[in-house]
Nucleic acid binder design. Sequence first.
DNA 1: ATACATACC
DNA 2: GACTGGTATGTAT
Length: 590
Amino acid sequence: MNDDFDSDTGDDDLFSDDINHDVPFHHAGTLMELNDNKAGMADLDKEKISRIIEEASKGSKFYDHKKKQQERIDAKIADLLRKKKAITEEQLKNASAKVGQIVRNLEKSRDLSRTFVHVDMDAFYAAVEMRDDPSLRDKPMAVGGPGMLATSNYLARRFGVRAAMPGFIGQKLCPDLIIVPPNFEKYRAVNAIFSEVFAKYDPNYSAMSLDEAYLDITEFLRLDQNVRKPSDLSHAEEVVSDLREEIFLATQLTASAGIAPNTLLAKVCSDINKPNGQFYLRPERPVVAEFVEKLSVRKACGIGKVTEQMLNALGITTCAEMFEQRALLSLLFSEISALSFLRVSMGLGSTFMGDSDAPAKSVSNERTFKATSDADFLRDQCRRLCEELSEDLVRKQLQAKSVTIKLKTDTFDVKTRVRNLPEATWNADVLCRHVVPMLESEMAPKRAFRLMGVRASNLCEKSANQQSTLDAILKQPSGTERLCPVCSTSLAKLSLALVNAHLDRCLSGSQQDDVQCPICSGFFRRPEIEHHAATCEGAATSTTPSVKSAPIRKRGAAREDGFVPRDECQRKPKKQLTLSAFFDQRKSES
DNA sequence: ATACATACC
DNA sequence: GACTGGTATGTAT
């Protein structure tokens, strides 16, 4: 069902714009079909695969939802076509002139001087599992669970078993399919190893996930120039070949790579000779032009299934066609979309790498469960999500000024509700007090939910205000009694962590007279908290060493693709947020 | 500004 | 039997 219906509308363009003398590329009309079956012919042909998938999901709520979704897309496309019909020749001519100017400017800005590499590990999770269990090597297998597969090996792909496919459908496509549960700790460890190789070629490399990264090897090439012997391959190819070899020697895993003058093209190129291959796109304008002409628009990062359908409906499949229709697109889409289409069609991409330590804009936590309308369960779930989110925020030293609740009904419809907080916080209880009412106003006797999520946004680093408050307290000479600046009660007997907990509650406006335990998040009256914390911490520290810092350097999904069951990957056991960890994080700042 | 949609891995 | 989770960004109202 998730297979694309080729809405191959014929070429009904009334407008051919040959008034442009600024066409950067001569786009011939050759529609070369890109090989879409990568690793050998399917054991099951496409027809059969779609039929099995169709049968497996027909009648399910998921399938119904997909159908509804597709109807909305179709309506949007119909709208688009209506809009197109209403466009006059004159409007198009004007647009054409405007776009022409943009094209000239873009062309002027084209930079072919840098060398980018996109490195992508081949079937990463599956490859790791096969490496460590030779009995899997000659069998179709996938990593994931019965609910969702994260990736599959190349043998399984021949049966149509793919990432982001539910496990039970994978089993239907390939009855012998072995499904291995993911082991994210291991993947992280392997990632740490080949990341060292990346760093050698570009200390500023940018990791997109555990299995892929962008490198700017311009500088490396410059320094390496004199050291290297001549060979058939270009310098860049030689270097990237070495890089892949080093990854293999270090991990026994293969990687594919794309080499190109910008990140957009590098990404496309890394897919061409996968697995265990690389593709070099020479940094010459005609070479880039020819390459991009034949490129399916879908290959461009940012053009997904929906946008592809819309473009297809306009008769646009390749980048050449997209370039031809640039004036039309500028009239049909927003400025920002039209510009991004234009850049893609000209083969322009980013020629500098994103700041790897840009601050996160949101932190969220969501979980799917058996659909229910049970209010107690939902409230409970909500509290748990808030507590976990709070841990994440503390870990990242961020506070939220807004919280969002996300709910998915049993029919897969998603609702979100935001609320702005009076003050930035990371306190679980505060989050919860704002989220639960939003949950409650969405609950209805007949409405069952299958997922709930909580997101913190409008983030700020732990506020200077609060930090200085804490500093001020801590810097009081020992011997003087520490008083809370908010409620003026004595904090002398509390450990640093508990001072923090107290401050959080005071600063976030809590009127209550109890203190939250940073370990179990429970609330206790002040006389009881010391005793409680001692027990709680004892239990916690005996099992856990410390909070580990993630090996990933960049924000983003820590996955190759598809599903990461929370409990198996990032979420440490509850007790991981120990008193000492809590302590360390704050202490290190004062 | 809020909600919803799309995209990426 | 059972279609994910985390983050960013664009679009619509």
